[in-house]
Amino acid sequence: MKYSYFPGCSLKATGRAYEESFLSLCKALDMEMEELENWNCCGATSFMSVEMGAAYALTIRNLAIAEKAGLDMVAPCGGCYGILLKADHYYKKYPTVHESAVKSLKTEGLEYKGTVRVRHPLDVLASDLPPRALRSKVKKPLKGLKVACYYGCRFVRPIAPFDDMHNPETMDLLLKTVGARIVDYTMKGKCCGGAMSGAMPNVAQEMTYLILRAAERAEADVVATACPLCQFNLEAYQDEIRAAHPDLKPIPVVYFTQLLGVALGLDATATALNRQIVPVEPILREKGILADEKKQPATAGV
């Protein structure tokens, strides 16, 4: 199975654990990801807030390049995924968007016919693998690990091609397949704050606090995410949140691809667990999923 791969900007920076774990997982499952040539930023929410015509043209340019490659286009970042999907939809629905993008693409000799299928790793892993392909490769089932799957917005809003808009569960099913126990909690589709974490930290941290607290109350050991911005907002500000809400205990927030990698027995570089700010290894060891750390050689005299 071969796909066009659209990494987006975050997967090359703060979200690199997502890229590392996702690409290793693909390798282990014989899925080939070919990075799109000379791709550009999807525009996220910011570009669209400043200039709409150029914003759609910017996003659609990536679709046009993917169309030339002729493969499904996989975008792991929730933001990129949702924006690509919406741009494709609006390109077909609104003549203003269409005309503007056509003019823009022409300058590069590109055109977009509208045939690209934009996919998310959750979708691809849940739908494209032969039955039992994932289960049969499990070496270390995530037995006893209680996971709160966090979806946030973009996989199902405003367009939901592969999951239920109001109660998504693809991630639940994937992680159940590898042995995890999924906890039920009320905040799995609430917004993580998105770009507000940098622009209005007090507002965003209140939002993430409510999500983390709900996961904690559901007795989750770990929160699983499928978007670099969600992962960042939920994990990176826990110290700051605790200043206002001392009741919040540190809770590891990982990418679902890291957990799948652990279950498949992939090595530490492949699962990129060392990139966690709130370490996840201790709980994985406690549950017997990861082996205990090598015994430290005894040091003489101490």
Binding site: A13, W39, T96
Partner: peptide, 25 residues
């Protein structure tokens, strides 16, 4: 996960031209 590098496309010039030709909607 920290990087101070200014990332850019291999060929940003094609994008400059492309966006200059988009309409203001």
């Amino acid at each position: 996960r920290f990087s101070v590098k200014l990332e850019h496309m291999p060929k940003p010039s094609v994008l400059h031209t492309a966006l200059d030709h988009a309409d203001r909607i």
